[in-house]
Design a protein around this nucleic acid. Sequence first.
DNA 1: CATGATTAGGTAAACCTTTTCCTGTTTCTC
DNA 2: GAGAAACAGGAAAAGGTTTACCTAATCATG
Lengths: 336, 336
Amino acid sequence: MTVTIRDVARLAEVSIATVSRVLNRSKPVSPELEEKVMKVVDELGFNPNPVARTLIMKESLLIGVLIPDVSNTFISMFVRGIEEELFQNGYTALLCNTNSDTKIELHYLDLLRKKYVDGIVLLTSAPKPEQIQFFKKHKIPVIFSSHTDKDSRFSCINIDDYQASYDAARYLIGLGHRSIAFFCGPMEYYQTIRRFDGYKQALADHGVDYRAEWVFDKDYDIDSGYNSGMELFAREDRPTAICCVSDMVAIGAIRAAEDSGLGVPEDVSIMGFDDIPIAGASRPRITTVRQPVYELGTRSAQMLLRQIRGKEQYKREAIVLPHEIIERESCRALTT
Amino acid sequence: MTVTIRDVARLAEVSIATVSRVLNRSKPVSPELEEKVMKVVDELGFNPNPVARTLIMKESLLIGVLIPDVSNTFISMFVRGIEEELFQNGYTALLCNTNSDTKIELHYLDLLRKKYVDGIVLLTSAPKPEQIQFFKKHKIPVIFSSHTDKDSRFSCINIDDYQASYDAARYLIGLGHRSIAFFCGPMEYYQTIRRFDGYKQALADHGVDYRAEWVFDKDYDIDSGYNSGMELFAREDRPTAICCVSDMVAIGAIRAAEDSGLGVPEDVSIMGFDDIPIAGASRPRITTVRQPVYELGTRSAQMLLRQIRGKEQYKREAIVLPHEIIERESCRALTT
DNA sequence: CATGATTAGGTAAACCTTTTCCTGTTTCTC
DNA sequence: GAGAAACAGGAAAAGGTTTACCTAATCATG
């Protein structure tokens, strides 16, 4: 049925070793034999069985991609970046949605290892001891894409969440805002914490009061933004601006503002985060902190590939990609 | 380093065949030996190497997922549905972005086959002869999720694009609109054609004029909707409503309307398609045709799994999931 | 009690490669 | 021209499993 190296060897009247050598250029073969082999290879349309290859070489051309949830636009753009780069290099992505559940993450990690994936890109809510443990034990190349694990031995890539959030808050302060709420994600998330810290520091550095009752830690999606917004806008004492942890949250918050009879940015300025495509097309266009998410993906893959190819002499890399404030329409200057 | 079946056999003082039998229950083994084997398995934490297993059994617990582009929200939700179902059943998804490029599709198809994937979910812009050829040649279980290939032998799942588009147009007609534009995708896409046909038929059935200059075939994204909108709204002769081929196109079109000084739905009614989360949160909330996309994903996976397990006696299935018009704010009744 | 059927468990082939090790020939060097 | 070195190419092992095939023992049946 399927044509094997054996068939090629037989028809080309050489040993299977020679066929393998021709195909992999692993050892010189005389021009005559090489030609003979290649002719038969072409005729039969022979392709080495990658599974057999994996078994012996312990490399699968497979990369595990662990993410909380592809259906999140930000993440799916990230994945797209990874996949693009992998495809260019002959690798394929094994997609694993974890919901940031440690149990599932570990389950997948183990599965990936057994499938001999050549490397793993890990996007997780927080660095977890079990994961660190796993990668210390099994020397599988890995890129952490969620957090800068400063004292860790593993490579990582991300933006400076702290600074980005700091910049967002400072931007609002620069616009004259002195009462700024923060719609963030769950506090167990590393990113949430970093961004929260940046926000608080920006307030502190500029003499703006921090108010705990203006911090809402729900999730990164539209509904969370909406619910936080409805809750906040129902109060007498409202801030003039809101820093959101994602564009989706911002969209929900804007929606809530409208449903509460408030205009954006006239009555409240709302700041997003991520800069997903919708941010530039929604009404109002969302002022946001842009993350180079696609590039985050491609670069992750590049780093991982470097690590896989470099093997022993590969040195840990920690890359921080620049963020950028994109001024649009959802935030206005306060003219008091 | 890694513990193999050989190690287990040696420590349990049985043959490797017996170990395999205990683990796979492929042949009865006496209780004493079974216990002995299981004890060693637990002690060593032995896990059969799935690659070796794949090589011999020609099954990998891997499913290829071919899609145009994950970063499209609709698609990423679909993928999520698939992955969820696969995970429940111990399978993992191999993600392949094709950009609907036949070359890349074929490349991936061949790659997946060589990796012994147990099945493939195929989301493509149109059924292509090369694909049909491929699946006729290699008997790999497959679910076509893009089109109802009526006379084909392959299973498929989707909504009724024709009817859905028909219903959308009719809905607008029911609202009193008599001049309805159509913002669709490339005409090589099967879905585009189906929906275009539905739109035209609805017009015809209700005595509404069809105007070729009101059909814009660009793409499924925001920019396409925006560009089509800007082009259309610049004209003197404008329709009172637009049927869009996706919510993203609708968002772009709404944006264009605003940038052209037109209100939605006061001046133009704009209808979406898909009902992605953003549709219910944007301004105005988008009236749209809901596709049960997540379910499309889970059901695809279920069908595929059935096919994989059923093997020979599996019968082709063609499932059509219901669509639904979700009335929101972007379309208004015309009171003449 | 003898014969045939059933059963547990072992041996080794098979899956399809890559690569080590070996052999026989050619080339180089003094 | 002899010995060493270099080289091409083949045989076979290795990678880790499953399973076909075989053997020996147990069981049932007439």
